[in-house]
Each structure stands twice: as structure tokens, then as C-alpha cells.
Nucleic acid binder design. Structure first.
Length: 270
DNA sequence: AGATCGGCCTGGACGC
DNA sequence: TGCGTCCAGGCCGATC
């Protein structure tokens, strides 16, 4: 489940090997969620950045308007270069041939997406178009965050997963941040003080996870094939039945907005 | 227009 | 052993 720290780790490994390369040909699996990726053929990759859980590669080509290759890893997406230890793989859904190598997009469950759009035009990608501020950037401020949470009556966890109040938080880090800030995932009203605590908790759990190159719970792998090291540091996500480190109450698993949710029934308050 | 819910997709865990 | 069922969940689109 690649969320912001996982996608950031992928971006850091992908960037030096993709930027300034020319894409000489493109292959995509017709059964997967790919749109206009052929339009990347012949272009040069001018830059690679992360926005929430998306990777955005700027593309330049002679006699053509600027475009962007938008990449989302879905649940099981991973990029791998065909290096020395490469072997054929039935789960490769797309291949970008570069002027100096071959980059595969492997995705067992086909939730990943690759799309080429006019540069900056995300109108066909609603989640990206409506995405909230980067949680580790200067535009993410406690007061604005509180105001954003007040604009909806959905449970706070569902709001986080919507990507609108803040970018890049998924199921793992939502559970972690809500535990850290002592807020019940089903809370529908979060006051300014609790919003500020959640603001800080989101930044804290994401920053720590980036430093450990993400959480590998099942499938997530970096471009070099390695796993992230954050899984053993999780306090809430997937830890149902274990004692809460704050109050020793057994963590409970429930369902919020159709997503598995683990929380402390005693010290996370609605 | 916002909220809700089912569908997508596959492998793995589990029960009988 | 083998089969069936359920679960994981980011995002999208249909529907209310």
C-alpha cells in the first residue's frame, strides 16, 4: 500500500535514473489502467516529482507541447530496471524503453495507473486535481487544516483518505496519526486543538517513515527491490489485539468508510 | 454538490 | 488435497 513515504522513496531512487533520459518506446498491457502512455514515446524526461501518492514526470519533445507522465502505484505497483539480475516476470504491465536501459512497471493487482496528460492538466484525474497540500511542505498549516476538516461531515479518517485536507495519507499512516493524536477515526467534528495535534502527528509519522524508506507490510518494494524498514515501528495499523502503548487497552479493529481501521477504544476519543 | 457504496484485481490465509 | 470464501485497499464511478 504505497502512501507518501513509499512513493517518496520510489521517487528518490527513480529520479537519478530517469531524469534526462529519452523514452524510445513504450509498451503497455491493454488490460491495465493506462491512458495515452504511447504519447511519451520520443520524449525526454525533464524532471520527476512526487505529489501525494502520485509520481509526475515532466516530458519534453521537439515540436510538441509539454506533457506529463502521471504514475500511481495503486496497491502493488513497483518500478524495476532490467539490470543484471533481471528475469522475465508475468506481472509486468508496462515497459518504458530508455536510451540507456529498460524500466518495467510491475503490478500484480493492476490497481496502478499510468497516464500522459498535457503538463499541469489534471482534469482527468480527479483525486490529483483536488489534492490537498503536501503535509511536509509550507502550505500545510494547522489552521487551514482545521478549516478543511470542518468543510465535511465525513468521519475524520475517511476525510484523510480522500486526499483533500492533506495529500498522501493512506490507511497505514491515517491509523498511526489518529492513534498518536488520540482522535477516534470515526470522529466527525475535530476542534482546532485536536486538528493541530493531528496536523503534527501526520507530519511526525510521515517524516519518520520516510527516514525508514517506507512501510513494507506485504507488497511494497523500492526500485532497488528492497523493502522499507518502517513496518516494525507501527503502533496501530495491523496491531489489533496488542496493548495500546499509552494505556494498555487492547487495540480494536473496526471498519471506517469501508476500510479496515485499528484504534485504541480507550484513548482515542470521538 | 456532497456522501456513500460497490467494483476493480489478485494472491494468500483460512476453514471444511 | 482441494476447493470455496474472505480479506487486503486506492481510487473511480454510479447512485442517492
Amino acid at each position: 500500500m504505497p502512501e507518501l513515504p513509499e512513493v517518496e522513496s520510489v521517487a528518490r531512487q527513480l529520479r537519478p535514473r530517469l531524469v534526462n533520459r529519452r523514452i524510445t518506446s513504450v509498451w503497455t498491457d491493454p488490460q491495465s489502467r493506462f491512458v495515452d502512455v504511447q504519447a511519451a514515446t520520443g520524449a525526454r524526461v525533464a524532471g520527476l516529482r512526487r505529489r501525494g501518492k502520485y509520481l509526475l514526470a515532466g516530458l519534453t519533445a521537439a515540436e510538441a507541447p509539454r506533457r506529463e507522465l502521471v504514475m500511481h502505484l495503486g496497491m502493488t505497483g513497483a518500478f524495476r530496471f532490467r539490470d543484471g539480475d533481471w528475469t522475465p516476470d508475468a506481472y509486468v504491465r508496462a515497459t518504458l524503453t530508455l536510451d540507456d536501459g529498460v524500466l518495467d512497471f510491475r503490478d500484480v493487482r493492476r490497481f496502478g495507473r499510468l497516464t500522459v496528460v498535457p503538463a499541469g492538466d489534471y482534469s482527468t484525474i480527479a483525486t490529483l486535481a483536488q489534492m490537498g497540500p503536501e503535509p511536509l511542505g509550507p502550505d500545510f498549516r494547522p489552521t487551514d487544516f482545521h478549516a478543511a476538516l470542518r468543510r465535511s461531515r465525513m468521519p475524520v479518517k475517511a476525510q484523510l483518505l480522500s486526499q483533500r485536507p492533506v495529500a498522501g495519507v493512506g490507511n497505514i499512516y491515517a491509523d498511526e496519526a489518529l492513534w498518536l493524536s488520540g482522535i477516534h477515526p470515526r470522529a466527525r467534528r475535530v476542534g482546532p486543538q485536536r486538528a493541530a495535534r493531528l496536523w503534527g502527528a501526520i507530519r511526525q509519522v510521515l517524516q519518520a517513515a520516510i527516514e525508514r524508506e517506507g512501510t513494507t507490510f506485504r507488497d511494497y518494494q523500492m526500485v532497488n527491490g528492497q523493502s522499507g524498514r518502517n513496518a516494525t515501528f507501527l503502533i496501530a495499523y495491523g496491531q489489533q489485539g496488542r496493548p495500546c502503548p499509552r494505556c494498555s487497552t487492547a487495540l480494536r479493529k473496526t471498519d471506517v468508510g469501508g476500510r479496515g481501521t485499528t484504534y485504541c477504544p480507550r484513548c482515542q476519543r470521538a
